[in-house]
Nucleic acid binder design. Structure first.
Lengths: 205, 205
DNA sequence: TGACTGATGTCAGCCACAGACATGACTGTA
DNA sequence: TACAGTCATGTCTGTGGCTGACATCAGTCA
């Protein structure tokens, strides 16, 4: 098992993040990254289906966390409670120590539209998978799709807040708080006089 | 104004959709599309920033429709009411006659991940713009972001339903119905016994 | 020992896309 | 009429993302 240096993917990912952060994403070629860890461009593309993907591995772990939260929830949980359970479970994947790394990674993504596209796509795939899980648990349409997409949406907003400078709450706390806010927003009197929502708490509070 | 054939962009778009639909997206080169309307590849890329973009023009119209709905809403409308207004306004952009064209276009997109990425990205950009509009109207965070993303999310789901075979309701009807469903889902008793959501109406009903 | 496997290298090629410059209507103006 | 300016287009050339085909070669297993 030591025929070649192990952890090739990880070394490529680390080198890629380094180079992207220092030199910029577009200014870094796939060959640069490969060369940085003593490999060839061709090998890079054997490990990652495309150049962007080197920043987006580990998606499966996130998906599994969401799914795990749903599976572990009580049998009679309502859709939005399943979403809450999923968010809690996913939040555990991002302890405080990971915040700095996430920040660096996100700063790279935020500078490049192509990377933002991929990020959205991943989030969207996550929502699709959650939707499948909800339907498998018997949640009907369109509730399953709405709840699943809401989960992805809340996670995305929560994550963005989590890595904001000065933010100290855990990802789970932020996510659950956003979910509560959404419930307040959506559940509000449909009649139409909820000026109250204008003075809602700040996400950063 | 007739120096060159007018409507170059539109002719390129039509040719692209044709070729993508018959031959497949990846099997169609930018040069193929250009040639189909008597132009060169270079000219194609002067009209569209990249190959995918030829399928995604007209985004501005959609954005404007959403924004128009928000602007026209009563001063004291709650965030989710603004979302409803935006959805109504956007729905008008897609009358029944456009359904078939939308279906064809979507069938191409559904077959190619790269195109799906771009589609999500556009929807996400739309949500961002809506968020700005909501904040400009005084909606606080995180309500503005949540409402804006919800608008994009509902629009996306509604659109997918609108082009489903057999669907006959208008896009606006579907969108408003989904929004109502979301409000029911989210607003439901947070206590945790809404088994009722399992028998919610089908989107296709 | 020898067949086999699996990660890697090498080579050649396609295509998306971009910069630089030329062209050839057509327009406005003197 | 002539001449300069504009603008969409063509031409040429180059880079980088990505792929298929084939070779290599260390280690594994029969």
């Amino acid at each position: 098992m030591v025929r070649w240096q192990p952890g090739t993917r990880e070394r490529l990912q680390a080198a890629a993040l380094d180079l992207f952060a220092s030199r910029g994403y577009e200014q870094t070629t796939a060959a640069d990254i490969a060369q940085a860890v003593g490999l060839t461009e061709r090998t890079f593309f054997r490990h990652f289906s495309d150049k962007r993907e080197v920043l987006f591995s580990g998606q499966d772990l996130l998906t599994e966390a969401f799914l795990g939260g749903i599976t572990a929830a009580p049998e009679d949980a309502a859709p939005m409670e399943l979403v809450a359970a999923a968010l809690e479970s996913a939040g555990e994947l991002f302890p405080g120590e990971r915040r700095d790394h996430s920040r660096l990674r996100q700063s790279v993504i935020d500078k490049n539209p192509a990377l933002q596209e991929r990020e959205r796509h991943k989030l969207s795939g996550l929502a699709t998978t959650i939707g499948d899980a909800l339907r498998a648990r018997g949640v009907a349409e369109p509730a399953a799709t709405l709840a699943a997409e809401s989960a992805g949406m809340v996670f995305g907003i929560a994550f963005a807040q989590w890595i904001r400078e000065g933010e100290e709450r855990s990802l789970t706390d932020i996510g659950l708080s956003l979910l509560a806010e959404l419930r307040g927003l959506a559940g509000g009197e449909s009649g139409g006089s909820s000026r109250g929502s204008q003075r809602n708490i700040q996400a950063g509070a």
